[in-house]
Design a protein around this nucleic acid. Sequence first.
DNA 1: AAGTGGTCTAGACCACGGC
DNA 2: CCGTGGTCTAGACCACTTC
Lengths: 233, 233
Amino acid sequence: MRLKTINSWLGIRAEVLSRIYDRTWKPGDLIPKEIDLAFEFGCSRTTVNRALRELAEAGTLERRRKSGTRVSLNPANKATLKIPLIKNEVNKIGKTYGYKLIQRKLCLPPDKIKNKMRINSGIKILHILALHTANDLPFVIEDRWINQHVLPESEKQNFKEHSANEWLVLNAPYTHGTISFSAINSSAENAHLLSIKSGAAVFEIERNTFDKENAITNVCLTYERGYRMLTTF
Amino acid sequence: MRLKTINSWLGIRAEVLSRIYDRTWKPGDLIPKEIDLAFEFGCSRTTVNRALRELAEAGTLERRRKSGTRVSLNPANKATLKIPLIKNEVNKIGKTYGYKLIQRKLCLPPDKIKNKMRINSGIKILHILALHTANDLPFVIEDRWINQHVLPESEKQNFKEHSANEWLVLNAPYTHGTISFSAINSSAENAHLLSIKSGAAVFEIERNTFDKENAITNVCLTYERGYRMLTTF
DNA sequence: AAGTGGTCTAGACCACGGC
DNA sequence: CCGTGGTCTAGACCACTTC
């Protein structure tokens, strides 16, 4: 029996969430098939499909051909983090952004970096060390390696005015990458740059970016003391 | 002119990514409108829309009515993190999961928690402290507050066999929440529980979950030394 | 006012996966 | 085999944004 008319996929998503929420449909339960929901809501199957697909992508539902759609037992809390340009991140919290290049030179990467960037031989690559500031206080250390053999244009940049961060976004197409987040006791050097005590816990983000099988860049961002990465769900 | 036939949204997404990658369309550029792409690819506008919508959700494109679709200036900025049940997280790395309840009692929350959970008066709420282990070694400390006034069933649970983490997923519907990630110098208590040195940097995830305006639970997860949260893009 | 994306429809065919 | 979700189509109308 047709109960109500909901002709938008957002409305259907809300209704489905509401039924999960009020435990009409409990974790693990099979919910009606698309056709039946379409009839019940007085809309087309396409619209129901859109709503259920979004919920499945969010981890709320699990769908399988033939067997149907279930309320997920394990709504894998997915948090989407926005990782903006550091400049934008600083501006967003209402502070004045500043940038200072500390070092730029071609040198032999340590083994750790060589492994991550899949560089075998004893070739030199571009190393950049820079400090991003917020209201003239240290905000993030950018410790970056760029494979200028993969990205020859990078060798012509001095990175004095603009950070490698910004230049790469506009000029380095990539195919994929990895990110890792961790907590580190700051080294003496980093502590000095950030004006904190050596050993203080700091938040680090490490990113590796690839062009097919070639590593373009590896960057380690070390944030100011007390930095928190936030998101909502 | 119709150049080629691509009749799946995945194919179109791949083609668009390829053109961004080979710099046919550069960051900031306007790309053709849906109708034109549909004609070029020999498919319906609906299919093009699906492909472009997915790319916009991924942060690769930016779309606006009337003005059209642009290649995002800032594409590498969204990372989706899956935050699974701790049990699943441990199993996934091929280790044996264990759980041990350390404390469970009703008590007055500290001001910090009261603010986060929007609790005003001097009421007692449920506090849980537990340790999750991997191959019998400390993995995560779960330090949780549950508002049993919002979730009366929680008061009947002893959380001896199964963690609050697991029970809540199946029994506590929520409307929204917040997550924050940070780096902390471990307290003496936590260092003891994790068998590490006091002051060692540890990774913390704090989550607040709400049912409309009511806070259901606040949890602080403190991970083993050296823990890394990983994702790819 | 007009251009562009956002969404809905009704119907169709296909792909996967239980049986 | 056959039920269910996955996707595509052609056309339609709407909503937002810029002019």
